[in-house]
Design a protein around this nucleic acid. Structure first.
Lengths: 139, 139
DNA sequence: CATGGATGGTTCATGCAGTCAACTAATCCT
DNA sequence: AGGATTAGTTGACTGCATGAACCATCCATG
């Protein structure tokens, strides 16, 4: 269809890899009793973030984030902290408990993803180059 | 953390690429008025499939598939057709309308994904090799 | 400095996707 | 024939997502 069979192959391979990757992601999240969105939020919370930044991060609506944070806060993993300078803003910060889960999540994601990169060192370097090109290739 | 900085880089790059890919997927689905799951199902329906096969495909429960097919059927994109040999089974088959949407979806997914593979032909070949290794690398 | 417009967050209603448990119907196995 | 297994559905419940309406706060400009 797309004229170029190699491109088609690459796209198909990417589809499979994406599938595995998201599978690993979900498994890693579940291993910490988190949904994927919750894991994503918690993982992004190295620095406190206002709600609307989180909405951006998730490419979703502010109204949606309210609920997600509600649930995380109800479990004591996250805290709404009023901003000093701008009283409209609530900064979300991970509690110690939340930080632990985030760290465990990242670790188990790493383990899950590692087999994917089980290539010879030289191959991994080459792969990194190519992926970097792909990433740079767009705006 | 994972000892190997190159692996870390590769994982991070993969994460970004996965992100873009799923973004494209969602956009392509939305362009046909479909949710991502609906698009996935419709795309898998080159051949009629019994519900439980679809559940496998989606890695979800049979009970979940019931609802998904309900909605597709309500829109006339899909049809429940009783199986001749095994009367427990309902084979799901795309209606002409459904097939059109599936084809449009695939086309617009192709266009969306193509920029990702916008590498020199030689690079694409090399990338295909590496991705193939990754895919083969697991059970 | 007052006011009108933008921004940050919440609420509400609605819909889809997902799980789990309980159920019916049909098939398989012996 | 009868018990286990398999296919699909139903119902109750949760989480994620959107869109519209709404406060509160901030900010710009007249």
């Amino acid at each position: 269809m797309s004229a170029d069979p190699i491109t088609d192959d690459v796209v198909a391979l990417l589809a499979r890899i994406v599938d595995r990757f998201t599978g690993s992601y979900e498994a890693a999240a579940a291993s910490q009793g988190l949904t994927t969105v919750q894991a994503k939020v918690l993982a992004a919370l190295g620095e406190p973030l206002p709600m609307h930044r989180i909405a951006e991060e998730l490419k979703s609506e502010r109204s949606n984030v309210t609920g997600i944070i509600d649930r995380l806060e109800a479990r004591g993993l996250v805290e709404r902290r009023p901003d000093e300078r701008d009283r409209r803003i609530k900064n979300i910060v991970a509690t110690p408990a939340g930080a632990v889960l985030a760290r465990n999540f990242r670790r188990s994601l790493g383990f899950a993803a590692e087999p994917l990169a089980a290539l010879a060192p030289e191959e991994r370097v080459r792969l990194r180059e190519l992926l970097q090109l792909m990433v740079d290739g767009e705006a």
